[in-house]
Amino acid sequence: MSVFVTKENFVPRHRPQSFDDFPSYDDLLPTLRFWGAWGPPGSDEESLGMLNMLTPDLVARTVAKEVKTGERVGLGWEFHMLDYPNFKRIQFDIQYKWVTYPFSFDDEYRMNPQQSSQWDGFRHHSQMLSHEFGPRQEYMTVDDPDKAAVWHGGTSAHEIQEGTRLSLHSWSKQGIAGRGVLLDYASWAEEQGITYSTFDYYGIPVEDLLKVAERYNVKFEPGDILLVRLGVTKEWMTKSTEWKENYRTLSPPTHAGMIQSEALLRFIWDNHFTAIVSDAIGWELFPNKNPDHLMSLHQTVLAGWGVPIGELFDLDGLSELCKKHDRYSFFFSSVPFNAIGAVSSPPNAMAIF
Protein backbone atom coordinates (compact mmCIF):
# COMPACT_ATOMS: atom_id res chain seq x y z
CA MET A 1 0.00 0.00 0.00
CA SER A 2 1.46 3.37 -1.00
CA VAL A 3 0.09 6.56 0.50
CA PHE A 4 1.30 9.94 -0.70
CA VAL A 5 -0.01 12.90 1.23
CA THR A 6 0.23 16.64 1.51
CA LYS A 7 1.71 18.74 4.28
CA GLU A 8 -1.69 20.25 4.93
CA ASN A 9 -3.32 16.84 5.48
CA PHE A 10 -2.52 17.00 9.18
CA VAL A 11 -4.76 15.72 11.99
CA PRO A 12 -3.42 16.86 15.39
CA ARG A 13 -3.35 14.10 18.00
CA HIS A 14 -3.96 14.15 21.73
CA ARG A 15 -1.10 13.29 24.07
CA PRO A 16 -1.47 9.67 25.28
CA GLN A 17 -1.49 9.16 29.03
CA SER A 18 -1.00 5.42 28.60
CA PHE A 19 -0.44 2.99 25.76
CA ASP A 20 -4.18 2.30 25.76
CA ASP A 21 -4.73 5.87 24.56
CA PHE A 22 -3.00 5.40 21.21
CA PRO A 23 -5.19 5.27 18.11
CA SER A 24 -5.33 2.05 16.14
CA TYR A 25 -3.27 1.64 13.01
CA ASP A 26 -6.41 2.01 10.89
CA ASP A 27 -7.19 5.31 12.62
CA LEU A 28 -3.87 6.67 11.33
CA LEU A 29 -4.86 6.13 7.69
CA PRO A 30 -4.37 7.51 5.12
CA THR A 31 -1.40 9.64 6.24
CA LEU A 32 0.14 7.22 8.78
CA ARG A 33 1.10 10.25 10.86
CA PHE A 34 1.10 10.73 14.60
CA TRP A 35 1.86 14.42 14.88
CA GLY A 36 1.14 17.18 17.36
CA ALA A 37 0.60 14.93 20.38
CA TRP A 38 3.67 15.58 22.49
CA GLY A 39 4.33 19.31 22.60
CA PRO A 40 4.49 22.51 20.56
CA PRO A 41 6.77 22.75 17.51
CA GLY A 42 10.40 23.05 18.54
CA SER A 43 9.89 21.65 22.03
CA ASP A 44 11.90 18.85 23.61
CA GLU A 45 8.68 16.85 23.84
CA GLU A 46 8.17 17.04 20.08
CA SER A 47 11.80 16.04 19.54
CA LEU A 48 11.38 12.97 21.76
CA GLY A 49 8.43 11.54 19.86
CA MET A 50 7.58 8.05 21.09
CA LEU A 51 10.43 8.23 23.63
CA ASN A 52 8.04 10.33 25.74
CA MET A 53 6.44 7.02 26.75
CA LEU A 54 9.61 5.86 28.55
CA THR A 55 8.35 7.30 31.81
CA PRO A 56 10.16 7.06 35.18
CA ASP A 57 7.57 4.51 36.31
CA LEU A 58 8.16 2.32 33.26
CA VAL A 59 11.95 2.54 33.71
CA ALA A 60 11.74 1.66 37.42
CA ARG A 61 9.55 -1.36 36.72
CA THR A 62 11.90 -2.48 33.96
CA VAL A 63 14.97 -2.31 36.20
CA ALA A 64 13.23 -4.33 38.92
CA LYS A 65 12.12 -6.97 36.45
CA GLU A 66 15.06 -7.26 34.07
CA VAL A 67 18.26 -6.62 36.05
CA LYS A 68 19.16 -9.88 37.80
CA THR A 69 22.86 -10.70 37.36
CA GLY A 70 24.44 -7.31 36.65
CA GLU A 71 26.09 -8.65 33.49
CA ARG A 72 26.24 -6.05 30.78
CA VAL A 73 27.35 -5.68 27.20
CA GLY A 74 28.04 -2.63 25.05
CA LEU A 75 26.05 -2.32 21.84
CA GLY A 76 28.22 0.12 19.91
CA TRP A 77 30.52 -1.04 17.14
CA GLU A 78 34.03 0.37 16.89
CA PHE A 79 33.86 3.93 15.55
CA HIS A 80 36.04 3.13 12.52
CA MET A 81 33.59 0.45 11.33
CA LEU A 82 32.31 0.49 8.61
CA ASP A 83 35.86 1.26 7.54
CA TYR A 84 34.70 1.52 3.90
CA PRO A 85 31.27 3.21 4.12
CA ASN A 86 28.97 3.74 1.16
CA PHE A 87 26.65 6.70 0.33
CA LYS A 88 29.71 9.00 0.02
CA ARG A 89 30.15 8.99 3.78
CA ILE A 90 33.57 9.80 5.17
CA GLN A 91 35.76 7.30 6.95
CA PHE A 92 36.34 7.73 10.66
CA ASP A 93 39.60 9.47 11.53
CA ILE A 94 41.29 10.20 14.84
CA GLN A 95 44.24 12.57 15.24
CA TYR A 96 46.43 13.10 18.30
CA LYS A 97 47.53 16.59 19.30
CA TRP A 98 50.03 17.69 21.87
CA VAL A 99 48.45 19.80 24.60
CA THR A 100 51.64 20.39 26.55
CA TYR A 101 54.70 18.80 24.96
CA PRO A 102 55.93 16.27 26.09
CA PHE A 103 53.38 15.68 28.86
CA SER A 104 49.81 15.36 27.50
CA PHE A 105 47.70 14.63 24.42
CA ASP A 106 44.26 15.54 23.11
CA ASP A 107 42.50 13.65 20.34
CA GLU A 108 40.37 15.04 17.51
CA TYR A 109 37.67 13.03 15.73
CA ARG A 110 36.40 13.43 12.20
CA MET A 111 33.37 11.26 11.57
CA ASN A 112 29.91 10.77 10.12
CA PRO A 113 27.78 9.04 12.78
CA GLN A 114 25.87 7.22 10.02
CA GLN A 115 29.05 5.32 9.11
CA SER A 116 28.95 3.23 12.30
CA SER A 117 26.52 2.40 15.12
CA GLN A 118 24.03 5.27 15.24
CA TRP A 119 20.59 6.52 15.99
CA ASP A 120 18.61 8.06 13.16
CA GLY A 121 16.98 11.14 14.62
CA PHE A 122 13.84 12.75 13.27
CA ARG A 123 15.87 15.29 11.29
CA HIS A 124 17.32 12.44 9.22
CA HIS A 125 14.50 11.35 6.93
CA SER A 126 11.41 13.00 5.53
CA GLN A 127 8.09 11.81 4.18
CA MET A 128 7.40 12.44 0.48
CA LEU A 129 4.59 14.79 -0.41
CA SER A 130 2.22 14.02 -3.26
CA HIS A 131 1.90 17.14 -5.42
CA GLU A 132 2.54 16.43 -9.09
CA PHE A 133 5.50 14.11 -8.65
CA GLY A 134 5.68 10.47 -9.60
CA PRO A 135 8.79 8.30 -9.28
CA ARG A 136 11.26 9.08 -6.49
CA GLN A 137 13.79 10.40 -9.02
CA GLU A 138 11.43 13.25 -9.93
CA TYR A 139 11.43 14.42 -6.32
CA MET A 140 15.19 14.80 -6.46
CA THR A 141 15.08 17.48 -9.18
CA VAL A 142 12.86 20.05 -7.43
CA ASP A 143 14.19 23.55 -6.82
CA ASP A 144 12.78 23.72 -3.28
CA PRO A 145 12.86 20.66 -0.97
CA ASP A 146 9.77 21.92 0.87
CA LYS A 147 7.76 21.21 -2.28
CA ALA A 148 8.69 17.54 -2.15
CA ALA A 149 9.05 16.44 1.46
CA VAL A 150 8.14 17.12 5.07
CA TRP A 151 9.76 15.96 8.30
CA HIS A 152 8.15 14.84 11.55
CA GLY A 153 5.52 17.19 12.90
CA GLY A 154 5.39 19.17 9.66
CA THR A 155 8.98 20.36 9.96
CA SER A 156 10.49 21.80 6.77
CA ALA A 157 13.97 21.32 5.34
CA HIS A 158 14.61 25.01 5.92
CA GLU A 159 13.78 24.64 9.63
CA ILE A 160 16.32 21.84 9.87
CA GLN A 161 19.05 23.69 8.00
CA GLU A 162 18.50 27.00 9.75
CA GLY A 163 17.26 25.99 13.22
CA THR A 164 17.22 23.24 15.83
CA ARG A 165 13.70 21.82 15.59
CA LEU A 166 13.68 18.02 16.12
CA SER A 167 17.29 18.14 17.29
CA LEU A 168 18.46 14.78 18.59
CA HIS A 169 20.21 16.42 21.56
CA SER A 170 16.84 16.38 23.35
CA TRP A 171 17.25 12.61 23.70
CA SER A 172 20.44 13.04 25.74
CA LYS A 173 18.84 15.04 28.55
CA GLN A 174 17.36 11.94 30.20
CA GLY A 175 18.80 9.30 27.92
CA ILE A 176 16.89 6.37 26.47
CA ALA A 177 16.10 3.67 29.01
CA GLY A 178 13.62 0.83 28.99
CA ARG A 179 13.02 -2.83 28.27
CA GLY A 180 14.90 -4.18 25.29
CA VAL A 181 13.98 -7.37 23.43
CA LEU A 182 16.19 -9.16 20.93
CA LEU A 183 14.90 -11.01 17.91
CA ASP A 184 18.01 -12.98 16.90
CA TYR A 185 17.13 -13.67 13.27
CA ALA A 186 20.72 -14.64 12.44
CA SER A 187 20.79 -17.46 15.01
CA TRP A 188 17.29 -18.61 14.07
CA ALA A 189 18.16 -18.72 10.37
CA GLU A 190 21.26 -20.78 11.13
CA GLU A 191 19.12 -23.26 13.06
CA GLN A 192 16.74 -23.46 10.10
CA GLY A 193 19.53 -24.03 7.59
CA ILE A 194 18.84 -20.69 5.91
CA THR A 195 21.91 -19.12 4.32
CA TYR A 196 22.14 -15.52 3.15
CA SER A 197 24.50 -12.57 2.94
CA THR A 198 23.58 -9.35 4.69
CA PHE A 199 25.03 -7.55 1.66
CA ASP A 200 22.72 -9.24 -0.82
CA TYR A 201 19.20 -8.20 -1.70
CA TYR A 202 17.74 -10.47 0.97
CA GLY A 203 14.40 -9.50 2.47
CA ILE A 204 12.95 -10.70 5.76
CA PRO A 205 9.15 -10.78 6.04
CA VAL A 206 7.55 -9.81 9.32
CA GLU A 207 6.12 -13.33 9.54
CA ASP A 208 9.67 -14.61 10.08
CA LEU A 209 10.17 -12.15 12.93
CA LEU A 210 7.14 -13.65 14.62
CA LYS A 211 8.65 -17.12 14.18
CA VAL A 212 11.87 -15.91 15.81
CA ALA A 213 9.89 -14.47 18.72
CA GLU A 214 8.09 -17.78 19.17
CA ARG A 215 11.31 -19.81 18.98
CA TYR A 216 13.04 -17.77 21.70
CA ASN A 217 9.92 -17.14 23.77
CA VAL A 218 9.99 -13.37 23.32
CA LYS A 219 6.90 -11.69 24.72
CA PHE A 220 6.41 -8.08 23.68
CA GLU A 221 5.29 -5.40 26.12
CA PRO A 222 4.15 -1.84 25.31
CA GLY A 223 7.10 0.52 25.29
CA ASP A 224 9.67 -2.12 24.34
CA ILE A 225 12.79 -1.21 22.40
CA LEU A 226 12.99 -3.79 19.61
CA LEU A 227 16.40 -5.08 18.50
CA VAL A 228 16.78 -7.35 15.44
CA ARG A 229 20.07 -9.13 14.69
CA LEU A 230 20.89 -10.08 11.10
CA GLY A 231 24.63 -10.68 11.48
CA VAL A 232 26.00 -7.64 9.61
CA THR A 233 28.86 -6.80 11.96
CA LYS A 234 30.05 -10.41 12.07
CA GLU A 235 29.96 -10.79 8.28
CA TRP A 236 31.71 -7.47 7.63
CA MET A 237 34.75 -8.67 9.56
CA THR A 238 35.13 -11.61 7.13
CA LYS A 239 35.35 -9.38 4.04
CA SER A 240 38.61 -8.60 2.27
CA THR A 241 39.89 -5.08 1.73
CA GLU A 242 39.32 -5.52 -2.00
CA TRP A 243 35.67 -6.48 -1.40
CA LYS A 244 35.15 -3.50 0.93
CA GLU A 245 36.69 -1.07 -1.53
CA ASN A 246 34.33 -2.32 -4.23
CA TYR A 247 31.34 -2.13 -1.88
CA ARG A 248 32.13 1.49 -1.17
CA THR A 249 31.71 2.37 -4.85
CA LEU A 250 28.37 0.60 -5.42
CA SER A 251 25.48 2.87 -6.38
CA PRO A 252 23.20 1.76 -5.01
CA PRO A 253 24.54 -0.91 -2.68
CA THR A 254 22.32 -3.81 -1.64
CA HIS A 255 21.52 -4.42 2.01
CA ALA A 256 19.52 -7.18 3.63
CA GLY A 257 16.69 -6.00 5.85
CA MET A 258 13.01 -6.08 6.65
CA ILE A 259 10.65 -6.20 3.67
CA GLN A 260 8.53 -3.06 3.44
CA SER A 261 4.90 -3.97 3.97
CA GLU A 262 1.75 -2.88 5.71
CA ALA A 263 2.07 -5.99 7.90
CA LEU A 264 5.47 -4.77 9.15
CA LEU A 265 4.12 -1.31 9.93
CA ARG A 266 1.16 -2.78 11.80
CA PHE A 267 3.56 -4.98 13.79
CA ILE A 268 5.62 -1.94 14.85
CA TRP A 269 2.65 0.30 15.64
CA ASP A 270 0.41 -2.27 17.33
CA ASN A 271 3.20 -3.36 19.69
CA HIS A 272 3.92 0.28 20.63
CA PHE A 273 7.68 -0.05 20.29
CA THR A 274 9.36 3.15 21.44
CA ALA A 275 12.39 2.53 19.22
CA ILE A 276 13.55 -0.06 16.71
CA VAL A 277 17.18 -1.16 16.36
CA SER A 278 19.19 -3.54 14.18
CA ASP A 279 22.75 -4.36 13.20
CA ALA A 280 21.62 -3.84 9.60
CA ILE A 281 22.90 -0.84 7.68
CA GLY A 282 19.41 0.51 7.01
CA TRP A 283 17.04 -1.69 9.09
CA GLU A 284 14.89 -2.21 6.02
CA LEU A 285 15.62 -3.94 2.72
CA PHE A 286 17.55 -1.65 0.38
CA PRO A 287 16.90 -0.51 -2.23
CA ASN A 288 13.13 -0.64 -1.87
CA LYS A 289 11.75 -2.27 -5.01
CA ASN A 290 8.27 -3.03 -3.70
CA PRO A 291 5.80 -1.35 -6.10
CA ASP A 292 2.99 -1.82 -3.59
CA HIS A 293 4.84 -0.05 -0.80
CA LEU A 294 6.90 2.78 -2.24
CA MET A 295 7.09 4.69 1.01
CA SER A 296 10.10 3.43 2.92
CA LEU A 297 9.98 2.33 6.52
CA HIS A 298 12.01 5.42 7.41
CA GLN A 299 9.34 7.71 5.97
CA THR A 300 6.63 6.25 8.17
CA VAL A 301 8.51 5.34 11.36
CA LEU A 302 10.72 8.43 11.64
CA ALA A 303 8.76 11.15 9.85
CA GLY A 304 5.28 9.78 10.47
CA TRP A 305 5.42 8.35 13.98
CA GLY A 306 8.48 9.75 15.72
CA VAL A 307 9.97 6.32 16.48
CA PRO A 308 13.81 6.33 16.53
CA ILE A 309 15.68 3.88 14.32
CA GLY A 310 19.03 2.44 15.41
CA GLU A 311 21.35 0.94 12.82
CA LEU A 312 24.67 -0.90 12.74
CA PHE A 313 24.48 -1.68 16.45
CA ASP A 314 26.87 -4.47 17.48
CA LEU A 315 24.49 -7.18 18.68
CA ASP A 316 26.83 -10.19 18.62
CA GLY A 317 27.79 -9.97 22.30
CA LEU A 318 24.16 -9.41 23.22
CA SER A 319 23.22 -12.56 21.30
CA GLU A 320 25.72 -14.57 23.35
CA LEU A 321 24.37 -13.25 26.67
CA CYS A 322 20.81 -13.99 25.62
CA LYS A 323 21.78 -17.56 24.76
CA LYS A 324 23.65 -17.96 28.03
CA HIS A 325 20.61 -16.99 30.09
CA ASP A 326 17.98 -18.27 27.66
CA ARG A 327 16.40 -14.85 28.07
CA TYR A 328 15.90 -12.33 25.30
CA SER A 329 14.72 -9.36 27.33
CA PHE A 330 16.98 -7.00 29.30
CA PHE A 331 17.41 -3.45 30.52
CA PHE A 332 18.46 -1.18 27.65
CA SER A 333 20.11 2.22 28.05
CA SER A 334 21.52 4.76 25.62
CA VAL A 335 22.79 8.33 25.97
CA PRO A 336 23.23 9.97 22.55
CA PHE A 337 25.53 12.93 22.03
CA ASN A 338 24.35 16.22 23.48
CA ALA A 339 24.97 18.00 20.17
CA ILE A 340 22.42 20.73 19.47
CA GLY A 341 21.04 20.39 15.96
CA ALA A 342 22.22 16.79 15.57
CA VAL A 343 20.66 14.62 12.86
CA SER A 344 22.19 11.38 14.17
CA SER A 345 24.42 10.19 16.99
CA PRO A 346 26.45 7.23 18.19
CA PRO A 347 24.21 5.41 20.65
CA ASN A 348 26.51 4.93 23.67
CA ALA A 349 24.20 1.99 24.38
CA MET A 350 24.36 -1.05 26.63
CA ALA A 351 22.22 -3.96 27.75
CA ILE A 352 22.12 -5.07 31.39
CA PHE A 353 20.90 -8.50 32.57
Rank of each mutant, 00 (worst) to 15 (best):
S2R: 09
K7P: 00
F10Q: 10
P12F: 08
R13N: 12
S24K: 09
Y25W: 13
L28S: 09
L29W: 02
P30I: 01
T31H: 06
T31R: 03
F34R: 05
W35H: 15
G36N: 03
A37L: 08
A37R: 11
P41Q: 09
G42C: 12
E46S: 06
L48D: 03
G49A: 09
L51A: 08
T55W: 08
T55F: 08
T55G: 09
D57Q: 15
A60D: 14
A60Q: 13
R61D: 14
R61T: 05
K65T: 05
K65Y: 04
E66I: 07
E71F: 02
G74H: 10
F79R: 15
H80N: 11
M81V: 12
M81S: 00
D83K: 04
P85G: 03
N86Q: 11
F87E: 14
I90H: 04
Q95V: 03
K97W: 05
F105H: 02
F105W: 14
M111R: 10
M111F: 12
M111Q: 13
Q114Y: 10
S116E: 03
S117A: 15
S117H: 04
Q118K: 06
D120E: 12
G121D: 02
F122M: 12
S126Q: 07
E132K: 10
G134I: 03
G134P: 01
R136A: 13
V142E: 12
D144I: 01
P145C: 11
K147V: 10
G153H: 11
S156M: 06
A157E: 10
H158C: 04
E159Q: 15
Q161A: 13
T164P: 00
T164R: 06
R165E: 12
S170H: 15
W171D: 07
K173D: 08
K173W: 08
G178Y: 12
G180Y: 06
L183V: 02
D184R: 10
Y185C: 07
S187N: 02
E191N: 05
Q192Y: 00
T195C: 05
T195R: 10
Y196S: 08
T198H: 04
F199N: 02
D200H: 06
D200R: 03
Y202K: 01
I204P: 04
V206M: 08
D208Y: 00
L210Y: 02
K211H: 11
V212A: 10
V212D: 04
A213S: 13
E214N: 15
F220D: 01
I225S: 07
L226A: 06
R229C: 07
K234G: 00
W236H: 00
E242H: 01
R248C: 01
L250R: 15
S251A: 13
P253I: 05
P253N: 06
G257S: 05
S261N: 06
A263E: 14
R266Y: 10
I268H: 03
I268G: 00
I268R: 09
F273Y: 09
D279F: 01
D279P: 01
L285I: 12
K289C: 03
P291W: 05
D292M: 10
M295I: 11
S296K: 10
V301T: 11
V301P: 05
G304V: 06
G304M: 06
G304W: 07
G306P: 05
V307T: 15
V307N: 02
I309D: 01
D314M: 05
L315Q: 09
S319T: 14
E320I: 11
L321T: 00
C322R: 13
K324C: 01
D326P: 00
F330I: 11
F331N: 03
P336A: 13
G341A: 08
P346V: 13
A349E: 13
M350A: 14
